[in-house]
């Protein structure tokens, strides 16, 4: 009954079988390296358009531009890995800017104290986030959104809503006694060995630390397991709630570090410094999904994503694109990168 069709079917299937591995291989290659190829192409294009783009000074300024939200993005990678999200990172960084200024300028304390206070505040806010999510069981988006508003308000309180710079006049008409310490400013403005901007070095150190924790240690393994199937992680004895708590504490602490770098760069406590940090950071981490096509949060992708955004903005401004197209372009890149990775790999099965 079926023997009559036998001669035809196999030849057809052999042809298909020959063709398929090739297209399959190409697709896999595109998913893996597509994003990096686009990035390299843009890099060449911008330089071809204006060779100034390729100058070391400009390349460093691209890296420098990525540092603050790059650090934040590395921090938010932890909540993303456990399938959560932290929307409070931008305002935590902004708080860190105001508090470091307040501690040094108004209280006339040392830069070290300022740094410690900021990091502890960041960790504390992360712990509250974690508590709200793990114990009170508020969904992560809502808890951290609430915390974002809360912290935005809190940062204005110490200075009565004013920015804090050297010689700022305080509420009682008194001139603030302190100033930003030089070694503090070095974190944002200095260069190691006269070449590498300190801020860039800080970002790279954070990136390496996050990479080591997430990719090489057993804690990282558990973080990823929780994100993929928290019930399974719980049933192998993992302390899921402790890990989730840790993810938000790390995210808050690293966000505070980002704020310290920002304060050191600007050299004053600017009330509007939070700006677009949150969206740039989360954008970087999400673009990171597409780098190497891994479809999950990963520190290497995050850092590449942050540098990509900075490079794009730098290149576009060299082409005299008006500043207001920047957000639009960022959005397009993010959507395209995600569509590319998820869209292509979806058809796998």
């Amino acid at each position: 009954m079926s023997s009559s069709t036998v001669p035809e079917v196999p030849t057809g299937s052999v042809d298909q079988a020959r063709r398929r591995p090739n297209s399959e291989r190409f697709k896999r290659f595109a998913i893996r390296y597509g994003f990096l190829i686009v990035m390299a192409t843009l890099f060449l294009f911008f330089g071809w358009w204006n060779p100034v783009f390729w100058r070391p000074a400009n390349l460093f300024s691209i890296l420098l531009g990525a540092t603050v939200y790059g650090i934040l993005a590395l921090g938010v990678t932890f909540p993303l890995v456990i399938d959560g999200l932290d929307l409070s990172i931008g305002s935590v960084a902004a708080l860190s800017v105001m508090i470091s200024a307040y501690v040094m300028v108004v209280l006339d304390a040392s830069g070290t104290v300022a740094i410690l206070v900021c990091l502890m505040l960041g960790a504390g806010i992360g712990a509250i986030n974690g508590f709200l999510i793990v114990r009170v069981k508020i969904p992560d988006l809502l808890a951290t959104l609430g915390m974002m508003f809360l912290v935005q308000g809190v940062q204005l309180i110490p200075s009565g809503g004013r920015s804090i710079g050297r010689g700022a006049v305080l509420a009682g008409g008194v001139v603030a006694p302190g100033r930003f310490r030089d070694y503090f400013l070095f974190l944002g403005q200095g260069r190691l060995f006269g070449i590498v901007p300190t801020a860039v070095a800080i970002m790279l150190i954070v990136a390496i630390l996050v990479f080591v924790i997430l990719s090489l240690t057993r804690w990282g393994r558990v973080f990823y397991a929780i994100g993929s199937n928290s019930q399974a992680a719980r049933l192998v004895g993992a302390k899921v709630n402790t890990y989730r708590m840790m993810a938000y504490i790390l995210s808050g602490t690293i966000a505070a570090l980002g704020g310290i770098v920002l304060a050191a760069r600007v050299g004053r406590g600017d009330v509007s410094s939070g700006g677009t940090l949150l969206l740039d950071a989360i954008g970087s981490a999400l673009i990171g999904f597409a780098v190497l096509g891994v479809r999950r949060p990963n520190p290497f992708g995050t850092i590449v994503g942050a540098i990509f955004i900075s490079m794009l903005l730098n290149g576009l401004s060299m082409m005299n694109m008006p500043y207001y197209v920047q957000d639009f372009v960022k959005g397009v890149v993010l959507v395209a990168a995600l569509a590319f990775t998820f869209g292509l790999s979806k058809t796998k099965g």
């Binding site: 393994r221 397991a225 993929s228 199937n229 019930q231 399974a232 049933l235 999950r296």
Partner: peptide, 13 residues
Amino acid sequence: AENAVVPLFNIRQ
């Protein structure tokens, strides 16, 4: 599927 397999992980993990 619900309680044991971590889909993101390979066999070793």
